[in-house]
Design a binder for these strands. Structure first.
Lengths: 217, 217
DNA sequence: TAGATTGTTAATCGATTAACAATC
DNA sequence: TAGATTGTTAATCGATTAACAATC
């Protein structure tokens, strides 16, 4: 995936965290927050927080700090959460099912328009009020409904093919839950969520800890 | 979370990827692989691959490269995939349900022993052959069954409490799907999977790309 | 032996942290 | 004005890449 700006991914991946923490502050009726206070909450250094925010503009005020509500709103805008994005889900298995039922995404502006699968037992079923259709209809559906994000929840061997169908339909981004590195054109955004890799990391850390404990004794 | 060795997390998070790519090579009956070939497949530089592997020992041979099968096995050991870990799932909603049904984890040595929820409509239901019990039984169950990993799939407000119950029971690691930063003792491993943050990153990249395109015109 | 490729050290690059002048 | 805290530059740290001697 080609990048279009010089903001590093390290910074980008902290933005949703800032957004979440600010939400929390607002829930607690806190109007004003300094980088130092944010540091205490987030675990990032105050310096890093100020650096990060200044990538996008001066949201703070010397001697005062940041207005929590304003900062929250600004980061929301930076993340594009003021927009609506239409999505489709390919693969209505465990994960596809779970994502389809996840109502909080819709609140953030991501609306699932279609769900597709190849299993005749699942086709026709309703998930969260959306009827599952055959995957062969996906490409046409994407074209007709102006879908931006394809959510890929297919088993490994079907995934590359499904990705191509998403791209031919015209999605701009793929949120990929399949444990595969998709081959896609440069201008297509791919975000991988690989649960195995995440679990294996847990496993590594457990083993590392055990070994450290064994040494101590 | 306190770290016990000086291997950086950047390296650790690449290990599952190496493991996966090597699996692929083995499936294609490839016996031998050089760092340069691995570079082409993985997208990491050959230099980085050699550096990474050398954190754990000299698995290669000058002039030859790496034996794919041996390397795969070694990385498996490094990741602790030669061990069995028992898990419980707290929260049998969308994600908990999906994880419970995910059979590939069991093949890698992670065995779900119990599933817990507070919803009386779900308690008693069988998921992947495991009867859902009331969450109040979880702590005792963890103690009695020597559970190492707790998988947290509860809604946000219940999560800290549920984490404490896991820890009191004696788990060593928490795989956390709740969008919360858990407060846990230093010796407890926490791996967060935050789907919102991942989706928001997609959203950011989409917006960034749009802006770049707008500028070009 | 000649060729290939590792293991490892040194150089570079990028990200994080520290420091402080600007300013509310 | 005095105090606080940002925005921003400079210093540091860590991770990645390059280079090459070691060796199969």
């Amino acid at each position: 995936m080609e990048r279009f700006s010089n903001i590093s991914m390290a910074v980008v991946r902290r933005l949703p965290k800032y957004y979440r923490y600010l939400e929390e502050l607002l829930r607690n009726d806190i109007k004003r927050v300094s980088s130092q206070e944010l540091s205490k909450i987030t675990g990032f250094t105050a310096s890093q927080i100020r650096q990060d925010l200044n990538c996008f503009g001066g949201f703070g005020q010397q001697g005062y700090g940041y207005n929590a509500e304003e900062l929250h709103k600004e980061i929301g805008k930076i993340l594009g959460l003021d927009k609506q994005y239409k999505t489709v889900i390919i693969g209505a298995g465990n994960i596809g099912h779970a994502i389809a039922n996840y109502s909080s995404f819709e609140k953030s502006g991501f609306k699932t328009m279609g769900i597709f699968d190849v299993d005749p037992d699942i086709i026709g079923e309703k998930i969260n009020n959306i009827t599952v259709r055959h995957s062969s209809e996906a490409e046409q559906f994407i074209k007709e409904n102006d879908i931006t994000i394809g959510i890929l929840c297919t088993p490994k061997p079907k995934s590359q093919e499904a990705a191509e169908c998403l791209i031919n339909g015209g999605v701009k981004a793929i949120w990929n839950f399949a444990p595969v590195d998709l081959k896609v054109p440069d201008n297509i955004i791919v975000e991988n969520v690989n649960l195995s890799e995440s679990l294996f990391t847990v496993s590594y850390l457990l083993k590392e800890k055990e070994e450290a404990n064994a040494k101590k004794r």
